[in-house]
Design a protein around this nucleic acid. Structure first.
Lengths: 194, 194
DNA sequence: CTCCAAGTTGTACAGCGTCCAATTCAATTG
DNA sequence: CAATTGAATTGGACGCTGTACAACTTGGAG
């Protein structure tokens, strides 16, 4: 509550320190608890101090959003279909761990930070290996991204009527439909049970 | 600014009047302008008065969300594939007209009001006619809903790099993939160009 | 005619993001 | 080594948000 510092004294803050504290606060107490004032409190600092290191709360959150995507590993399987499936599933899982952020990804149309870019390029590479190039690949990617983020956003809470694992299987189901559509019939899938 | 009424005088308000004014304010000035105070102003009333007709702003917005879905007509084409496509395309279009609301649909997992229910049942009927029943139909529906809302949420602003019509075609493309996956290979589509 | 429930105002609270001026410190320059 | 400048920090404030509570007036029911 009381300020431990007088008027011009340094607190040794730093953009990275602020972001780290924000990440922590977000992970521990959720998005609603991430206020400039709470963040300042945690850093033992006045709220306005933060504005020396971050231009606005929006910018701060944007950075956090991209950071979360850093937790998504590149797929191990080099085959296009399996690789994309792996990538989107990992994305889905990571997004679920930060459920409250997900609507933000959509309203800020998908985050343009370095991590988002990295994932996007991995996906284009995989699609190219699968024979999908150029504009088509970009569209396929957009479909997959929207689908994945959408499903993550749709995730019900923990004690919901429909359990999360069910929704996760549902996600996988639709993902297969999309992959089949994207990568064409060139797969040796058995025909669906007539 | 100044209150036209003394302390116990009636303003003749009514739940429906409040909702109508809210719809209007939302349509005219956008989501950010929809505050209890602005709404009260427009009705010539003090902000707290609204709480006699609406339990909270959240409840008010929930109602508006469901109302928007009322603008989605039932599909005309009775054939399952075309019907579902028509339905989802209409939904997409209506959602685009209220772009700022779309993230809310996701964060409130899809709106459970009467309009949402109506659309959900139309879709189950269509899927049943297409030979998809029970749990499978519910999952297919979830995929389609998530996909559609997701795409609407992903919609870029008006003066964006990628024009809206392009995104709309992209939406239709992915929708076809999903429909093919859902309704099976029982369609007489020509094979994709090898 | 009386009484009560409902609608409305006055006032207020706690919280939010953010801006401005005053102050002090660290680093750079001469 | 001294002087100056620029960045970091505090004190305080502004305008905004949703919402609670008591006082009051009114319309309708009994």
């Amino acid at each position: 509550m009381t300020p431990p510092r007088a008027r011009g004294q340094r607190a040794g803050l730093d953009r990275e320190t602020v972001l780290a504290a924000a990440r922590d606060l977000l992970a521990r107490d959720g998005l609603d608890a991430l206020t400039m004032r709470a963040l300042a409190d945690r850093l033992g600092v006045r709220p306005n101090t933060l504005y020396s290191h971050v231009p606005s709360k929006t910018a701060l959150v944007d950075e956090l959003l991209d950071d979360v995507l850093g937790g998504i590993p590149a797929p191990e399987d080099p085959r296009p279909e399996q690789g994309v499936r792996e990538l989107m599933t990992a994305t889905y899982r990571v997004l679920l761990e930060h459920a409250e952020l997900v609507p933000l990804y959509l309203s800020r149309q998908g985050a343009r930070g370095p991590q988002a870019q990295r994932l996007g390029e991995i996906m284009l590479d995989l699609l190219a290996k699968g024979g999908v190039h150029g504009e088509q690949a970009v569209e396929a990617r957009r479909v997959l991204i929207v689908y994945t983020i959408g499903f993550a956003a749709f995730n019900p809470g923990e004690g919901a009527v429909v359990p999360q694992e069910h929704i996760a299987r549902n996600f996988a189901l639709g993902l297969d439909w999309l992959l089949t559509g994207i990568l064409g019939a060139g797969m040796d899938l058995p025909p669906p049970p007539a």
